[in-house]
Design a protein around this nucleic acid. Structure first.
Lengths: 360, 360
DNA sequence: CGCTTCCATGGAATCGATTCCATCATGCTT
DNA sequence: AAGCATGATGGAATCGATTCCATGGAAGCG
């Protein structure tokens, strides 16, 4: 009843050949048509499937790619994961999944788990910084970052931020002070959305509508977006209008609500992720602010429900699925010397932005 | 530079002991405090991590649990996956993910992949029927179904449906005709939401508001929900008001739009999943039907954006995360003789349902 | 006809862990 | 003091595949 799976030895015996021959036949090596046929027949009859364990152990090459995302409840990461899965499936590779919750510690723990599983190719939406990821790449793992880059160590001035932006555009950052670690990580290929352009376009759009006091509502991993925002609106940047939440929905709501209450003079908000956008809509409604009459809203991520809101949300769309798919392609190609990929974003204008209401 | 990982042999040599001793120390066997200390020190210094490959091969027991969901883009499955991941993480087990797209063929292919990986514990939101899953359980895999049961073969009358409903309520179905296959699959433990109660409550609620022509908008895997719906509204059941879409968003939209257009006399819709609810809102808006004035809407799944719609959507909430977590617990316990779990649903009344407008 | 070449083939080593079993030292009992 | 029990320890087998290498037979060529 408990039929244990057939091994290569069983097949060899049943076919009256040696295990080496079976292995050769199944992996396309040379064999006489006669034996090949017989081996294939026996293998089919026994429903033989080679064990990935044995193969991987011998070849010291692991199958499988690891996927680390912050939160699968966030539709964007769901899209990204679907992209990775699609590519992996067509390559016949299994995907080992981990959810980091935007917690660098959990991320490191999950990386360790992948290492134990001998998964040596990873696609990560990183939460930790270079201190997490440099050792990983040095340990021989093939890493591809998706949608984000690891946070850089806090910069004294905003020079670091500038360097980050330049990196985004494909230009190598000037070899600055703390080059050692950063360079190891920035050599890692990445698949990113063009956050610079996305944010710039959105800010320009809001400006065109007359908005001057535009707030930024960010979360973990939105460093590049806030940097682009600062560049686009300033200087001077009204720092009170730049607020950050942690990953949770509660925190996002608190941040949004706090923002609206502490600065009733703001007229537009750029939410750097769909969870934040959701929170902004909720908070605005709670405070009886009408969108877009009282406050205009642009949200990152073109999630399906953006269209369902009333008014439908104007969004910065980034191709989540494509990001995942391309990242999987890169990690499967595995070349160290693969260049990063930046995919375009698109501002999709719906109904959540209006002209600035004149103060009276 | 390409430091390959340390093996148990390296540790043994460095510590001046045999490999058996190292293994014993690391897996809690007996060893003298003196050597234990030395081995641990060396292991730490070499950053040694036992390879799961070697261990699993030897023990013929695989680590890891497989997770098969239809679509990670659907927030509900994202929640479910997060639940599974949370439980797996606390047990230190890796999770291998597959997305079936509600395609039984793809599902079967993914199961084969898991088999090759020697993953013998699976949590599945099944797309295929008993013909897919019976062989799997017979092959010795520990399977737990989540959120759904495999479709039963089409019944001649609605007797099969009734049996299914009774199973849902924890009562064994009467040993009917085609018992062989079905029983093998229905012996598989499952973690389900109480769809019967959820749908019943929703229908009763709509009836209480005066609605008589209530439509059901379903998708793949909603057999139990439609059965409960039929039972709750009928007989007689107006079959034109029961429509099904395939998994895609386009198909859902087409089904919803077709429904509204072909039967303008309907006054309420029960959408059996959040993607379908989304489609219903969209289609209604496109056809200038006001919710809830012209048509009332109840949606399955309390996704975060349900509150963002205007009006906010009345939903049947099912605890996606809990379903995943409990399913993971069951599959880890691994007992054949585990009973299924049915978790409660809750009708959350918001603003998408109103009294039936009197025809004039 | 004899030699070389080439191909099919099977035995055995290997990957990294666990675990059975034999060995040896130590301490305790009678 | 001798024998026995106990516990620490290392060697070797094992898991299921791949792959190196040796062997043997057939075919080709001078």
């Amino acid at each position: 009843m408990e039929a244990k799976r057939a091994t290569i030895k069983d097949v060899a015996e049943a076919a009256g050949v040696g295990v080496a021959t079976v292995s050769r036949v199944l992996s396309g090596g040379s064999a006489s048509p006669r034996t090949r046929e017989r081996v294939l027949a026996v293998a089919a009859q026994l429903d033989y499937r080679p064990s990935a364990l044995g193969r991987n152990l011998r070849q010291r090459r692991t199958g499988g790619i690891g996927l680390l995302v912050p939160d699968l409840t966030d539709t964007f990461f769901g899209q990204l994961a679907e992209g990775v899965l699609a590519c992996a499936r067509s390559a016949g590779e299994p995907v080992v999944l981990g959810s980091t919750g935007d917690d660098p510690e959990r991320e490191a723990e999950l990386v360790g788990m992948l290492l134990e599983q001998s998964v040596d190719r990873v696609i990560a939406v990183p939460s930790g910084g270079a201190d997490t990821w440099t050792p990983v790449t040095r340990a021989g793992m093939t890493v591809v970052f998706a949608a984000r880059l690891p946070a850089e160590p806090a910069a004294d001035d905003d020079h670091g931020v500038t360097a980050d932006l330049m990196l985004l555009d494909g230009v190598a950052p000037p070899s600055a002070g703390r080059a050692a670690d950063v360079s190891a990580v920035s050599a890692v290929p990445a698949v990113l959305a063009d956050d610079g352009a996305g944010v710039r376009t959105a800010v320009r759009y809001l400006r065109g509508l007359g908005h001057r006091r535009i707030a930024f509502l960010g979360g973990p991993g939105h460093d590049r977006r806030v940097a682009a925002f600062r560049e686009a609106v300033g200087p001077p940047v009204d720092e009170e209008l730049v607020v950050f939440a942690t990953g949770s929905r509660d925190s996002a709501y608190a941040a949004a609500s706090g923002l609206f209450q502490s600065r009733p003079d703001l007229t537009a908000v750029l939410a750097a992720g769909n969870v934040l956008g959701e929170a902004a809509v909720l908070a605005a409604r709670e405070l009886d602010l009408r969108v877009p009459r009282d406050v205009s809203l642009v949200m990152y991520d073109d999630v399906p429900w953006a269209e369902l809101c009333s008014p439908p949300l104007t969004v910065i769309a980034q191709p989540g699925r494509d990001i995942g798919y391309r990242a999987a392609e890169l990690v499967l190609r595995g070349g160290r010397r693969t260049r990063s990929v930046v995919l375009p974003t698109e501002l999709i204008v719906r109904g959540s932005c209006g002209p600035r209401r004149q103060p009276y």
